[in-house]
Design a protein around this nucleic acid. Structure first.
Length: 354
DNA sequence: AAGCCGTGGGT
DNA sequence: TACCCAAGGCT
């Protein structure tokens, strides 16, 4: 499982050379600012590069420094992050910024073990930041690297298991240890780039791969069945109804509670489980049903929602938990994606707002 | 350790 | 359509 010192030297040199010729031009590859690199790493967690790019630019234009992030109101954080998903990430990011200022005297920690004490920093992010921003030799093992290494050594175990992870982490560490001084970040990114563009989950381009000569899977012809995948649970189907209730250019909305497990602090239109069949519930909410407009599909983690959109009219006093939000204020508060999709449908039907 | 946390794009 | 994800971390 362990590569020889000679193999490590050759393999890393070949891949780093390949990287210099084939790397994509990405915004976070033009900076050495550890905070900016951190923002990119957090955004890229479980999120595609093409999705991240506009969010990265927008986020840094609003919060260009650790200090500006640390002092930002939570609502403005959530608003900028809205649509990117995994909203806990941005809360951890702000908590980390505040810790760096308070516990580290505003000096960005350079050591892997110091970085790992910060909220939102797991093994991967600590290794990525310490190597990319500071050149420290820690293996950043993400999903791409896991796949590349699995194929390289033709690992047939389940990469979700910690025992297998340990083996692959060990191989990754032996490789990063062999690169030249200050090249650890380049090496880690090269390995990830290979996984993202050549050693892809489906139909890997082995003919284009600079590591082909060392790849055990290519020798065995097993690259397409590595890594072995375990069947995830089927997504649970759900039905919900969103109610658009307007009055005087205002929308009836509520804010999700801070203790909510999902999307805490975000604003949303009134929503109930299932189809909206009778109007009696609506009356309690201070609404009366007018008509069903349309429906759309939206997935949230392990569930897939069939979202029905209804238009209702205001009638009497709304529940205390609801607020009238002026249309012009919608762009200043964090909205759930279901709410943004619903408002977009409305917009497409009557562009001027009603 | 396994399950949860979002989303949009590709097949 | 239904399924597969994409630079993970936390509980």
């Amino acid at each position: 499982m362990k590569f020889s010192a000679t193999t490590c030297k050759q393999l890393t040199k070949v891949l780093i050379d390949w990287y210099h010729h084939h790397k994509r031009d990405l915004p976070w590859r033009h900076t050495r600012n550890p905070y900016h690199i951190l923002v990119s790493e957090v955004m890229l967690q479980q999120t595609r590069v093409t999705t991240v790019i506009p969010y990265y630019e927008k986020f840094l234009s609003h919060f260009p420094t650790l200090e500006s992030l640390a002092s930002a109101p939570e609502q403005s954080l959530l608003r900028i992050w809205s649509g990117l998903g995994y909203y806990r990430r941005v809360r951890y990011l702000q908590a980390a910024a505040r810790q760096i200022i308070s516990k580290w005297n505003s000096q960005f920690p350079k050591e892997y073990h110091d970085l790992q004490t910060l909220p939102g920093f797991g093994e991967y992010t600590a290794a990525a930041v310490s190597s990319i921003a500071f050149g420290h030799k820690h293996a950043a093992v993400d999903g791409n690297v896991l796949r590349v290494l699995t194929r390289l050594v033709n690992e047939k175990g389940n990469v979700k298991k910690t025992a297998i992870r340990r083996k692959l982490n060990f191989a990754a560490q032996s490789l990063v240890s062999s690169v030249g001084p200050r090249s650890a970040g380049t090496w880690n990114q090269a390995l990830m780039e290979l996984g993202a563009t050549v050693c892809t989950p489906q139909n890997p381009s082995c003919n284009l791969c600079p590591l082909k000569q060392w790849c055990s899977s290519v020798k065995a012809g097993t690259q397409c069945i590595r890594p072995v995948k375990v069947r995830p649970h089927k997504k649970e189907k759900m039905v919900t109804s969103v109610i658009v209730c307007t009055k005087n250019e205002q929308f009836l909305m509520r804010q999700r509670p801070e203790k909510s497990k999902i999307m805490p602090g975000f604003w949303e239109l009134p929503e109930v489980e299932g189809q909206l069949l009778c109007e009696t519930d609506l009356h309690e909410w201070g609404m009366k049903q007018l008509r069903r407009l349309s429906s759309f599909s939206h997935g949230i983690t392990s569930r897939i929602y069939d979202v029905n959109v209804y238009i209702a009219a205001s009638k009497g006093k709304p529940l205390r938990s609801f607020h009238w939000v002026p249309q012009g204020k919608l762009s200043t508060i964090p909205l759930t994606t279901i709410t943004r999709k619903t408002l977009a449908i409305l917009e497409s039907i009557s562009p001027e707002g009603r």
